[in-house]
Design a binder for these strands. Structure first.
Length: 439
RNA sequence: GGGGGCGUGGUGUAGUGGUUUAACAUGCGGCCCUGUCAAGGCCGAGACCGCGGGUUCGAAUCCCGUCGCUCCCGCCA
């Protein structure tokens, strides 16, 4: 017999059906047993008259909640049943996966344990509808991003995650034994996607893992996360990248709202709207003036930079004045940017780079890259780097590499912003942090 | 790496110097009742209050250390 999903049961009134799911609640009475069964589409009550099958009644009595079951029975309309006005009269039940008693915690209980405890039992935590929705949204979002890229002639790449030499600073790299030598886990596909520009691919994207050996203890950092990266050639400035990005993001919102807007509103209380294009923009200098007006005081060291509090303040300001969740911060000083960001003007101190803040959270860094070999060398030296370790990278710019730029975007941070999640651990399938390597 | 907060039955909390044989909820076990539906009623098991030291006549409660978790800062996506 074919399995029927719970949401479709009302199309099968008075039919015998087979359903599969988890036992959410068991009400074991003197004459009757009521089982509330959950599958990924909903809940249904299953009724069993004990005297009709004493052996089955005994099996049911022994069941632990959250056991995985296959049940067959007849679907009947019953207005008395508060759960959908229908129920299944049980005929047979098989226990596919019994749940030990007691459970570490009840996924559908009145209260939830601490997050750290839920993470220990992540698969039980993930049984909650809310968690399933997060990953449905993620799936839709990624598909929309890909659609948009493909509609704009992008090519997908998968760059290696094992590297022979530290690429940028080296401080935040994990190292690992690699036969007779030491290898490093990629902390960004940055250099490899730029290589694709040197290769003439013109437009590439990659969605893949990124590793950062920073011992960061915050609600928005992970040591492994999914980076969403793109790079495009023949641009005039970083403004071309920003213009592409905001349309790409708006398209993603459109698709997510179309598929999950209602569910998101119900579950997270967030009414999603497509962010209007163009997104607000503010230069670093303007941002500092704004912060002064807002009465936000930056720490003394942050002369040409922002701290998280400043980012939140700027985000809140644009929400208030323009009703916009996103804002680009542009014209970052070279001092706080990597050596490969192109300068705004030759010899100047500002770069052609931007950050994108979503609800005050940094979700993207992007820039036009410096593609001129000699200028790039000069900038690396200005940062105090030695050229030898990055010579392979520098070589990408020796034989005709077009002007280009791109960005890196945090997938889980994006979900946090979209769904108002307060902690990145809730937005990722399995969290990895300085003290969390399991499950 | 620096700073703050928290750590009490399986889980979530209360208790913050002596009416504590540590309370309540939920979960678990047993019984009762009932086509139940946030089911209800009664009974029961389950915590030496993270760990170690100290102060005190007396410590879950105060102090010190330590470990764990968490948030903020640094850093970034």
């Amino acid at each position: 017999m074919k399995r029927i999903l719970i949401k479709d049961l009302d199309n099968h009134i008075d039919e015998q059906v087979r359903i599969q799911g988890w036992l959410q609640t068991l009400r074991d009475q003197k004459n009757m047993q009521f089982l509330i069964i959950r599958d990924r589409t909903g809940l249904v009550q299953v009724a069993h008259y004990k005297k009709g099958n004493l052996e089955l009644a005994e099996t049911i009595s022994m069941l632990g909640t959250e056991s995985a079951l296959t049940l067959t029975g007849k679907v009947v309309k019953n207005e008395v049943v508060k759960l959908g006005g229908l129920e299944i009269q049980l005929e047979d039940l098989s226990v596919e996966g019994a749940a030990d008693v007691p459970l570490p915690f009840e996924p559908y209980g009145e209260f939830l344990p601490d997050q750290d405890f839920r993470l220990d039992w992540r698969y039980l935590d993930l049984r909650r509808d809310l968690n399933r929705l997060i990953f449905e949204v993620q799936t839709t979002a990624e598909q929309a991003m890909r659609e948009y890229w493909l509609d704009h002639d992008f090519v997908e790449i998968h760059s290696p995650k094992i590297m022979g030499a530290p690429s940028e600073s080296g401080a935040e790299l994990f190292s690992l034994p690699y036969f007779e030598t030491t290898a490093y886990l990629a902390q960004s596909p940055q250099f490899y996607k730029q290589m694709a520009m040197a290769a003439g691919f013109e437009r590439v994207f990659e969605i893949g893992p990124v590793f950062r050996a920073d011992p960061s203890f915050t609600s928005r950092h992970m040591t492994e996360f999914t980076g969403v990266d793109m790079e495009m050639s023949w641009i005039d400035s970083h403004e071309d990248v920003m213009a592409f990005m905001e349309r790409w993001l708006a398209y993603t919102y459109e698709k997510v709202i179309e598929a999950h807007g209602e569910a998101i509103e119900e579950t997270f209380g967030v009414h999603l709207t497509v962010p209007s294009v163009p997104f607000p923009r503010i230069t670093m200098a303007e941002a500092h003036d704004l912060l002064e007006d807002l009465g936000y005081k930056l720490p003394p060291g942050k002369v040409f930079d922002l701290d998280p509090g400043a980012e939140r303040a700027i985000g809140a300001h644009f929400k208030e004045t323009q009703g916009h969740d996103y804002v680009f911060v542009t014209e970052w000083p070279f001092e706080v940017r990597p050596f490969y960001h192109m300068l705004k003007s030759e010899g100047g101190s500002l770069t052609r780079s931007f950050d994108l803040l979503g609800k005050g959270l940094e979700v993207t860094t992007g820039a036009q890259r410096e593609h001129r070999y000699d200028v790039l060398q000069t900038q690396a030296l200005a940062k105090g780097l030695t050229l030898e370790p990055i010579q392979n990278y520098l070589n990408y710019f020796r034989y005709g590499t077009p002007p280009h730029g791109g960005f890196g975007f945090g997938l889980s941070r994006f979900l946090m912003i979209m769904l108002d999640l307060s902690n990145i651990r809730e937005a990722v399938y399995l969290f990895r942090g300085p003290t969390r390597l399991t499950p």
